[in-house]
């Protein structure tokens, strides 16, 4: 059977994919203190799902992460980002002015931390969703990436 000669790839990637996704979230939430942030985390998360799609086939990846979900995720990300801006507006500040989120005096940083965390989350959602949508659009054109093509 054709199923057999990717067995090492399957076993290894089954172990690696959770690590990749964990690393994406580490990158996301550690972005304040080291290199990283929403853009990188979004790409790494998308790459984890794409690795799953390449090893186990696009259809099973689509069952795990449906295309509807990725499209919605991209839209939710942009909405979350601009939502933080409107939150600041409602609190009486300017658009995206994090200092106004909790109406803090200058020098207090809770609003900055929360605001940046939320917009980075928005970037993560938007980038991961858009990249997965792009991948599904390209992969959906062929039935599957076949072995004999290589």
């Amino acid at each position: 059977m054709n199923d057999d000669h990717h067995v090492i790839l399957r076993v290894v990637s089954k172990m690696l994919i959770p690590v990749i996704v964990m690393f994406a979230f580490y990158t996301q939430f550690h972005g304040d203190f080291g290199p990283g942030g929403g853009f990188q985390a979004g790409i790494i998360f998308a790459v984890g799902v794409i690795l799953y799609a390449l090893v186990f086939g696009v259809p099973s990846a689509m069952r795990a992460v449906p295309p509807v979900f990725t499209r919605a995720l991209a839209a939710i990300g942009v909405l979350l980002y601009s939502g933080v801006g409107y939150w600041a507006l409602l609190q009486g500040g300017n658009f995206l002015e994090y200092q106004a989120l909790f109406q803090e005096p200058p020098g207090k940083h809770k609003g900055q931390h929360i605001g940046i965390l939320l917009i980075e989350l928005g970037v993560l959602f938007a980038v991961a969703g858009a990249m997965l949508t792009i991948f599904y659009a390209f992969a959906g054109r062929v039935a599957e990436i076949r072995d004999k093509d290589w």
Partner: peptide
């Protein structure tokens, strides 16, 4: 890209 190439549900 999704508008140009479809949403990729064809392969599924």
């Amino acid at each position: 890209v999704a508008l140009l190439l479809g949403f990729g549900e064809r392969s599924l």
